[in-house]
Amino acid sequence: MKKLILILLVFVSLVTQAQNPTLFEEANDAYANDDFETAIAKYEEILANGETSVATYFNLGNAHYKLNNVAPSIYYYEKALQLNPTDEDVQNNIEFARSMTIDDIPVNEETGFQKSFNKFISTFSYDTWAYLSIIFSVIFVVLFLMYYFSRRPLVKRTLFGIAIFVFLLGGISVFFAFQQQEIQFNNQFAIIFSEEAEVKNEPSQRGEAAFMLHEGTKARILEDYQGWVKIELSNGTQGWMENNTLKRL
């Protein structure tokens, strides 16, 4: 049996800037003492205060995994990846959590340029692309001022060329930031929380059952209708579920 690497991510900068350090430390202590219920309660209290971080979501996922709570563990790992899609610890642990799910649904992979483009944009989150655009903008202003006050023609041409290049990088970062935001808004996902949930061919209790899904399965939200949601699985299969059977990311 594969051994899950459960590492508590204690990012000092995140703890001090984005969350209550005392409460986070208490939650970590409870986790270290195998008191996972208390740890979960304290991590959730941090989130209830509007304070989020990769570390909090990751540790919540770990605590739920220890208690064999399949859906919550996958849900919080997914939330951590929303903040940092490249975090290897989260990527590794979510694969272990997914191995506990019942539904084995194949993925229809994107192909060609669109796949490469989306993969590249997903390298960073929306916030990171936005920060990069700000950094490039500041560098551009500095280079432009140096160009403006320089008296040597060769230096001026060099600075102007570099400034234009940095300006283009800033513009590209802004474009990628909006593309990443659009991808996130147009691709709303949810995790099935019910132990077993019926998927119907129409948004009604009288609708014919199409298939069953189980806790921990990830689905894309396509439409909302009077307490029902239309979902799409990774293999393209669609159907309607009651809204209370899943939790949106």
Rank of each mutant, 00 (worst) to 15 (best):
N118A: 07
L132T: 05
F185N: 13
I40K: 00
K230W: 08
T16D: 05
S53H: 01
Q184F: 07
P153W: 14
Y225D: 15
E242L: 08
M100I: 01
F120L: 09
E242N: 07
I102A: 05
T237Q: 03
R206S: 11
N187R: 14
V10S: 15
R220E: 15
Y131F: 11
E25L: 10
L60I: 07
A18D: 01
N68R: 08
R98D: 02
G61F: 04
E78F: 04
F165M: 03
N68K: 14
S137M: 14
A63S: 09
M1W: 01
P85M: 10
G216S: 07
V138T: 11
K79E: 06
L168R: 03
T101N: 03
A163V: 03
E198T: 14
N84G: 07
G161R: 14
F176W: 09
E242Y: 06
H214T: 13
P106W: 01
A190C: 12
N118D: 15
E25I: 05
L4F: 11
I172Q: 08
E215M: 05
Y77E: 08
G236I: 01
L67P: 02
P153F: 13
F175N: 14
L233H: 01
G170I: 12
L4N: 12
E196T: 13
V90W: 04
A130P: 02
N187G: 13
N62T: 03
L6M: 14
N33I: 04
L67F: 05
I162Q: 04
A39Q: 08
A48T: 06
R98C: 00
A39G: 14
E202T: 06
R98K: 14
Y65C: 04
S133Y: 13
F149C: 03
I102E: 08
T123I: 09
D35W: 08
L249I: 15
A80V: 03
N33V: 08
L169C: 09
I5N: 01
E25G: 06
V15H: 09
A71Q: 02
N49C: 10
V107L: 10
I139D: 09
T245N: 14
I192R: 01
Y43R: 09
F178V: 10
K119G: 09
L6Q: 08
Y43C: 12
G227K: 07
